[in-house]
Structures are given as structure tokens and as C-alpha cells.
Amino acid sequence: MTPLSFQELIQNLQAFWANKGCVILQPLDMEVGAGTFHPATFLRAIGPESWSAAYVQPSRRPTDGRYGKNPNRLQHYYQFQVVIKPSPDNFKSLYLDSLKSIGIDTSIHDIRFVEDNWESPTLGAWGLGWEVWVNGMEVSQFTYFQQAGGLECFPVTGEITYGLERIAMYLQGVDSVYDLSWTKNANRKISYGDVFMQNEIEMSVYNFEEANTSQIFEYFDFLEEEAARLVSRHLPLPAYEMVMKASHAFNLLDARHAISVTERQRFILRVRTLAKIVAQEYYDSRAKLGFPLAEPELLKSNFDEGSEK
């Protein structure tokens, strides 16, 4: 069996999870650090409404850029994100089936669930779960959300994040991400490097050398004010966009070493404060709509006990 190309890997995962009833979304058209930032995960984890979605999310981590020289580290890479709420009883076995669908035979490979508790200080979110190892290599994160934006999650969202490049490198047996086969057509192979090498080099230069820090500092302040203002106008979704932008601005400043260690904590706290007020506003806005996607019995129990703790 020939291993999947990078794009076939994505197609297989999409088909698999579409088959399990997930809404297949397209990537968020904004810079985010992880698939968790997508409103389809972070905001949908809040409140009593049911939700199942899967999508690819390009993720930007400016500090991880290596000018295209490190075979494993990228400042822009892909995550495949699956969220199901409430997390189903067979969530883990669905995940194992999904591995089979991309060519990982569970009777050959050693698959392990190693405790890894997830926490996002900027989003005021945390959950418990595992990193999943295949023959000693971490290929996914598996998390049961317990809190998002400072709000208790009920019901609980189950989240799976696949590290697509790692899995593809493993399946294709290549040692450099740039050697991955993105796709093959009749006459030639298009590699990951063909698609992204120049981007990695130029964006590393931008992130580490060119980003205009004084402008970004000002921009951060603006976004902070704007998010608060939009919350006061009862517009949680635009306000949340400001939070995501602020978070990315912070990441850029971090990559430029423009924030001292002590300042760093303060910036994280500023983003978290925004994430919290936005989360509450989003909850209120869904409540006003009567939580249209909630199962009746969960809706009732949410009103009965939703404010527990």
C-alpha cells in the first residue's frame, strides 16, 4: 500500500469524521496559534449546546520558525482538529478507527495514551487528557475540556488535535518535513517544501527581524480596547476576533524578544481577561437565543445547575 500524500491524509481524516456526523469546516481565515482558537472549538465549548466539527487549521507559532533549516520545526504548520460535544463514550475508539483509516494498523503499531494535561493561560481554558504516542512518537493531543474562558464546561467537549506533518512524515518515512509528498500528479511530485519552503524562510525573517514592534505594541493596545468595547456592544464574535488578533500580536512580540519575562505574564493576563469577558458575553448571547443547538434535557439541566461552582 502506498502511503498517503499530505493532501490525501487530510482528505481521509475529513471523510472519516464527516462520516461520523461532524460538520466539516474550513480553516479560520485568521492567524491563530492552534486549532483550539478557532471559534468552532473555543466558543462552541461554552454552554449547553451540542456540537461536532472537524477542520484543518493552519497554525502560526512565530517563535518556532527556523528559516527552513530545521527538518521538524515550522512557524506555520497544520493541525487537524476534531471536537465533539458532549464527548461520546466511544470517543477513544473512534480515534483509533481514524488512525486505521489513514494507514496506521493498530495490531502492528504500539499506541499509547500518555497523561498530558492541557492548559491555555491566554484562553483561561484547561482540560485533562493525553498525548497519543505511536511507537514512541507523539502524533495527537486528546483533551476533555473542563473550562473555557473561565467558564465550567458542561457538557464536556472532547477534542482531538492531529499533528498532520508528523503523521505524514511517519507514514511516508521521510526525515524532513520539506520532503513530504504533498501530492503526485502524472508528471511530477509536489513536495511540502515546494509549497512552503519560501514561506518558512521569509516569514522567519519577518517574525524574528522585520516585525515592527512599536506598531505591534500599539496595535495590541488598540485590540484590547476594541475587544472590551465590542463586548459592551454585545458583539461577542467580533470581540473574539480581536482577542485572537491580540494573541497573535503577543506571539509576534514574543518572537522579537520585545517582551521581558515579567511583562510576559502581564500580557498573558491581559489576553486572558479579554477571553473571559468574551466567553461570558458569548454564553449570554446564546442564552438569549435559547441555546438553539442544545438537547432538551441538557438545556434543562444547564439552567438548573449551569452555574455550579
Binding site: 502492528i108 504500539d110 499506541i111 512518537m137
Partner: peptide, 21 residues
Amino acid sequence: CNIESKNPEEVIRGNERVIHP
């Protein structure tokens, strides 16, 4: 590991590929 693999060589190769980087 936590399995009597049908192909232990594959598991070993996988682990060796992780430790190398």
C-alpha cells in the same frame, strides 16, 4: 511497548526514528 506486535521491527524502527531527531 503495550502490544505483541505483528511486526516488532516496525515498532523498533518507529522508536529509532523518534530518538534520532
